[in-house]
Design a protein around this nucleic acid. Sequence first.
DNA 1: ATGGTAGCCCTGCTA
Length: 260
Amino acid sequence: MRIATWNVNSLKARLPRVEEWLGYADADVLCLQETKLADKNFPTMAFSALGYDSAPHGNNQWNGVAIVSRVGIQGVTTGFGADTVDPYEGDARLVAANCGGVNVISVYVPNGREVGTEFYERKLVWLDLLHDWITVTYSPTDPVVVLGDFNVAPDDRDVWSTKTFEGSTHVTEPERERIRKLEEWGFVDTFRSLYPDDKLYSYWDYRRGDFHQHRGMRIDLVLATPAVADHVTWSVIDRNGRKGKQPSDHTPVIIDIDWP
DNA sequence: ATGGTAGCCCTGCTA
């Protein structure tokens, strides 16, 4: 089974690229972030024409997530549930479903803007709530994959220049601590686990020609519990998603699992 | 050089 994640920075603007990508990437499950579409505008028909069922979660022209799957989508849920006060209430940043026996969670973690702002503080709370929601919803022995745009580079290997990002969001210790807490519960960073030394990125700022200068960050993560991670046969960051005309500023991250 | 680009609609704000 092939599972992927891609922050598309507007699915409306990126649909031709996503269709093209599905045509060659052969993904069974694709998690999307920054769809920037209300559910009523989600291109369900375009995906069903390619053989995929859709589970979109979007409120308006901002943020928005989705799962599309050709191995089934069952038990779709959105957000942290009615009993939780989401510090980014009104945004659409989490959708979960069971796809072919794997519990898949597509997340778009808040950016946080600047360290010291309320947006940054709320990002940390959001990450705490993600941890809490996962730990009450699943067991570490379940097959679970939480994947998407985490807006956190887990450690210094994951940024092109530590000096450039010093004091910025995405690299602060409190943010990284939240990722480690997810790993302590049971998640494996599947890409890093396979490639301990690779300085490869999933996001490049549109400005300054950052992509072509290899000035990026690895902030799009595929975290899997051992029930899944132990079956990973291959993982890649597909740089093709960032090449050519009208690319997103993120590129897809993929895992293959040997799955029954 | 505190720059630069892309996408949203609100030609400013968010990333």
